[in-house]
């Protein structure tokens, strides 16, 4: 790993300033993607701006929405009793990311800023229609995820919090790669307060996406049975040593059924 300058500012404005000043800076959250990337020499930033000094961890559960600070670890999200009541699917998703030690360090803000195509959180953000709060603005999930490892974040912009609407029901099911524990396919289903249904898929394609054919079937009848015989097209899905595009397409319907069965 190449060496770098390291700063840990206490305020968002100071973090942005430090990033603007850096020649080739990177923000550090939990570090569970960035540090392995640096070790492999895939990135060699001149400056690391550690966001852990912002101390913005916390889960605030309101009647209509839940706001989670960007620095909240996966373990803290999974462990929030209030969240387990308000959005059980989201708490379950967080409790299934990586392993216990990874969950003690990795953060929701880091995961969403990185937007790994096999990460879990993007499925919840898109599946619930979350709003990403940043140092500059609020971005709806629809406009936030722009492709593989790519988001609407600009330059020195920092994710500060994520706001999720409280749904009627939500559920998440994933088929993890047994070695990496990343999602080969993960499906988040939500029946929102207005009765509309959203289904978001991670791991299967180059980035998180919604599955309109599954949403349409579940809108008529929110049950696993409603998804019988509905096939998702394999075109455009990932095909690699772990699974073919056809297999991933098959898994989407299977995981969607399990997510609906688990939804509460």
């Amino acid at each position: 790993m190449e060496n770098f300058n390291y700063v840990r500012p206490a305020k968002v404005a100071d973090a942005v300033k430090a990033m603007k000043k850096a020649k080739d800076g990177k923000y550090l959250a939990g570090g569970h993607t960035l540090l392995p990337t640096l070790k492999q020499g895939l990135a060699a930033p001149t400056d690391i701006v550690d966001l852990s000094g912002l101390k913005n961890a916390g889960v605030k559960v309101g009647a209509k929405s839940v706001t989670i600070g960007a620095g909240t670890t996966h373990a803290e999200v999974a462990g929030s009793k209030d969240l387990r009541k308000a959005i059980p699917g989201l708490a379950k998703l967080a409790g299934g990311i990586g392993d216990p030690h990874v969950r003690h360090r990795g953060t929701i803000g880091g995961s969403l800023a990185n937007n790994d195509p096999a990460a879990d959180y993007p499925a919840a953000a898109l599946g619930l229609g979350a709003t990403i709060h940043t140092s500059d603005r609020k971005i709806p999930a629809e406009k936030y995820f722009t492709g593989m490892f790519s988001t609407a974040l600009k330059g020195s912009e920092i994710v500060t919090a994520v706001e999720f609407p409280v749904p009627k029901k939500s559920g998440y099911a994933k088929f993890p790669n047994p070695a990496s524990l990343y999602a080969m396919v993960g499906v988040f289903v939500a029946q929102l307060a207005d009765g509309s249904v959203r289904v978001a898929v991670t791991g299967a394609g180059p980035g998180v996406f919604r599955a309109p054919e599954l949403e349409a079937a579940l809108a008529k009848n929110f049950s696993a049975k409603a998804l019988d015989g509905i096939a998702v097209k394999a075109k455009g899905l990932n095909s690699d040593m772990h699974a073919s595009a056809e297999y991933r397409a098959h898994l989407i319907t299977v995981m969607a059924k399990r997510a609906v069965e688990a939804a509460k």
Binding site: Y6, L28, G31, L35, P36, H101
Partner: peptide
């Protein structure tokens, strides 16, 4: 008080 992987944490952090 929390278990972490010390190969994936900066000492300075």
């Amino acid at each position: 008080g929390k278990a972490v992987k010390s190969c994936t944490a900066l000492a300075i952090a």
